[in-house]
Each structure stands twice: as structure tokens, then as C-alpha cells.
Computed example of a mutant assay.
Amino acid sequence: MRVIAIANQKGGVGKTTVTMQLGAALSRRRRVLVVDVDRQQSTVWWAENVRDRLPFDFAGNQHLNVLTRLRELQVEYDFVLVDTPGNLEDTPVLETALNAADFVVVPLTPEPLAVEPTLRTIHRLVEPRQLRHAVLLNRIDARIPSQLNTWRELLDATWGVPRFDTYLRQYKTQAEAPVLGDLVTTLRDNRRTAGTISDVTRVGLEMTQQFAPALSGRW
């Protein structure tokens, strides 16, 4: 079982989107549990809007104690994804989640105001625990040709933090997914949804490869 914390002390960078959509993508081939310890309970609201059965097991509105007992679960999961709070006030909650984690996904939107909280999360909370981690660029605007390369260069050369090769582009389909209860496993694959499905699927594949050969097998 691999515990993946989705973490950033900057709110609004897409932690819930990454948690829910990555959980759905991984569930195509793996057994997944999604846990929510953020008091905003955004994943709970999203899950309640899903019309079909969730493709993963879901534990919303959980007390912190569940994180310290994840290894004791009788049900075997390949991945446990934990949606965490995005503010300084809930730092103890985030620290508990990180103490239970094997890997940290750090979503980052291409906004200057997101930089300092993201680097603070990594340098003060993630790195001291010697946790494997990677930044996931989110809401990349394909209409801005230089945006992706600029932010990749910042992550690689200026800040020197690990990142996913894959990224999530900005799509209306993705923005509307929580209120419509959509997941990549329930979306109809057409011209409108193809980009969202492709992006999340590639992130899921790269996430799985982070733990190869422990989770070997064709995706």
C-alpha cells in the first residue's frame, strides 16, 4: 500500500481535483482509497454529486486518527490518496498526513502568488521528512505557448524541485467536474472531454511508475 498525500499550503491550486481525478485514473487498474481530512470537505461534496458509483473506496470527513492507522487496514489497497488542508491554520493536520505518507503530490498553478506557499510547503514540511515528492503543474493554459516551458524552467533551474513530466491543462470540463460529479472514468470520451481524460490518465501512469517495479504490470 502506498499513501499519497496531495498537499500545498496554498489554497485554490487544485488539490481536490488532483485527488479525485487521480484516484479515478488509478482505479482503472489498481485498488484505491480516497481519504479527506480537509475540514472544507470538498471531496465529499464532489462525491455526493457523482451520479454513478464511485470507482474507488471513499472515506470522507475523517478524523486524523484514521491516518495513523492506515497500515492496519484489513483491506489491501494499492494506493491511498489523502486530500489535505490548504492553509496555515491547519498545519498540524497536514503534518499528520505527511507523517503517514510515502509520496507527496504538490499541485501548483502558474500564478506568482502560489510560488511562496508551494516552496514553503516543500522546504519546511516535505523535505525535512525526506519524503519523495513532485510538483504537478495544474491549469496550464494551452493558449499561452510559453507558459508551460517557463514554469518548467523555474521548477528545474531556479527552484530546483522535482516535478511530474506530465501536467494538467485548463479545461472547462475539468473546472465543471466537481459540480457535475464528473470523473475521468465517467466522462464520455469525445472532442470536448478528450484533453481532460488524456491529461489525468498520463498523470496516473506516471504516478504508478514512481513505484515500479513494486506495482508492476501493464497499465
Rank of each mutant, 00 (worst) to 15 (best):
D199N: 12
L131N: 05
T201Y: 15
A175K: 15
V75Q: 12
R143Q: 06
V106D: 06
A212R: 14
L119N: 11
V13D: 04
N49M: 06
L205Y: 14
R152W: 11
N149I: 10
F103N: 07
R53D: 11
V104K: 14
P117V: 04
E48R: 00
T196N: 10
T185D: 09
T166G: 07
L26A: 08
L94A: 03
A142P: 01
G86K: 09
I4D: 01
F58A: 06
R124I: 00
S42E: 00
T121L: 09
Q209P: 01
Y167M: 12
R169W: 07
I144G: 01
T96V: 13
R53T: 13
N99V: 04
V50L: 08
V106E: 06
L183V: 02
R143S: 10
Q9L: 15
E116F: 00
R39T: 02
R129E: 10
V75M: 07
E206S: 14
T84K: 00
L155M: 12
R152T: 14
L119V: 05
A59G: 02
D199L: 13
T16Y: 03
D38M: 12
D102H: 15
T186C: 05
R29E: 03
M1F: 09
D78P: 09
Q174I: 07
W45G: 00
R124K: 09
L180D: 06
T121D: 10
Q209K: 13
V161Q: 13
R124D: 12
A25M: 06
L154N: 13
L148Q: 04
D156W: 01
